[in-house]
Design a protein around this nucleic acid. Structure first.
Lengths: 130, 130
DNA sequence: TTAATCACTTGCAATAAGCAAGTTACTATT
DNA sequence: AATAGTAACTTGCTTATTGCAAGTGATTAA
């Protein structure tokens, strides 16, 4: 498997999950990948405007935690795409629940698109090797 | 309603949700309240060992965002309890999905108790005024 | 040759987290 | 009456993380 931090605050499943993806940006990136985005520039262009150094850092962490895979889709010049693994795709239910909650309880938030709420993790993985 | 930050990164529901509870500690506290904990000292005694200044700060934020209510349950000396509102209790599905995900994909994490996975938000609110 | 794009890295300032100790208001003990 | 103890915090300070602006290397396009 991939290298994981190994310094969990506790072994409570919620706590370990938060240690891996419980920061301000990780799930935003997972969302973007759920929406079909896959390139560095795509992530930068999201409305939340992630700083570029943090983007690079989060992509590295998510990769080393097995949530996404980075692979070149061309050379000269080399360009990479970032795709969810099964582990990453299965965060979809988490994101769906968060979006549902915000829609119900945060007045300012926009409604999540229906296709998003009905999507399944399996729909998201396009030929990645787990 | 209660005072909310009003400085959301975007109006995407996921993004607004993360702006409210997407930090390292908020959901840990919501989990504790889901488990029946309600006092300052209870939260401090959780295995993740939240620093006391951060605990006080998070309780304030969660209260001002309408996720919990703080109320005295005795005076002389005054002691407070912190209880989930409906808004807070409805984070349960989010936490359940996170726990489920960790159990499936994080080798080190313990299995979530069955009663927890089957609990419903309504079960959690004990006579708070929404 | 110059300009442009993509995918980053680097340096530094600002913000947040974490640790230890102190405080206030009581109750209980000697 | 003095001492100790507990609950719920606050304060000061150090360390770590974020965020902003600018710079870099590879390559294509004008």
């Amino acid at each position: 498997m991939t290298t994981e931090p190994l310094n969990y605050r506790s072994l409570c499943p919620l706590s370990t999950a938060l240690d891996l993806i419980g920061d301000k940006w990780s799930l935003i990136l997972v969302r973007d990948m759920c929406m079909g985005k896959s390139k560095y520039g795509d992530f930068q262009n999201s409305p939340e405007a992630i700083p570029t150094n943090i983007l690079a850092n989060r992509l590295r962490k998510l990769e080393s935690n097995g949530i996404l895979v980075k692979r070149p889709y061309q050379d000269k010049p080399v360009r990479y795409e970032y795709c969810l693994t099964l582990k990453g795709a299965e965060l979809l239910p988490v994101i769906q629940q968060l979006a549902r909650w915000a829609h119900q309880h945060v007045a300012e938030s926009m409604p999540p698109p229906a296709w998003f709420l009905n999507a399944k993790p399996e729909d998201l993985i396009k030929a990645s090797k787990l």
